[in-house]
Amino acid sequence: MFRLLNIELIKLLNNRASVILIIVYFALLSLISLIAVINFNIGPIDFHLAEQGIFNFPYIWHFNTFVAGLLKFFLLIVIVSMVANEYSNKTIKQNLIDGLSKKEWILSKVYTVLVFALISTLFVFIISLVLGLVFSSYTEPNIIFSDLEYLIAFFVKLFGFFCLGLFSGMLIKRSAFALGAVLVYFFFEIISYGILMAYYKGDDIIDRVYQFLPFKSLWNLIDEPFSRLGAAKAFASQVGEDLSYDYAVHWYEIAIVLGWSAIFIYFSYKLLLKRDL
């Protein structure tokens, strides 16, 4: 395993474009902490976002993993190009000739993706911990370390998403087209979902079907956290709306995404087995 990771790291870390994108990604992740300094000061209203409770434990786990999850597209570029470039440089052929098996080749990519997801999760964990310790109103250990399932969901979300990128790169073999395909599919899923939701108003059949599709299943892992904010709740109760909503991370949501990951990895491998290079 470490041999395969090592091979992949030599390829990645010598590629300037990849390194820059990775750095930008982690820089953006750290920028989450900058939300803390958002401070509106309009006449009598003094609005300091950090004091609205977004950095309170355990809510911070939910909020930060959600926001960090939006940044995953940066790493998608790295992952798609690390697969597709092997085709355009024909280095995949050379790797196999040099004695890497097809299985090892796919595994080296999967391990890399796993490490990306793991490091991102660890990074978000540390940033959230620091932010929370600075701004949270509650700092008792049992509160700090509650709701950590959001981090697991975050890890699974990234892994599933990167596996999708991996498969797309394998299938299409050209970075730009592979990225485009992911985006086109992304919009297709969102728009069709929006249209169908409007059509079947009041029926949850669409949700029940769409929870099995790649992007919706990724989205479902971490529900949007904003309506959970104290301010939003207060506002909702004033206008008489009930915002009680299920924010929890469910095992079946994780299972669906892991299922997709397995499918993506398996078919990437099958593609490689079947193709003449």
Binding site: I7, I10, K11, N14, N15, N89, T91, Q94
Partner: peptide, 15 residues
């Protein structure tokens, strides 16, 4: 077929 962005030495390290 080699990685164009890597030096000869790095490419051989990979091999």
């Amino acid at each position: 077929n080699f990685y164009p962005y890597m030096s000869a030495y790095k490419n051989l390290q990979l091999v």
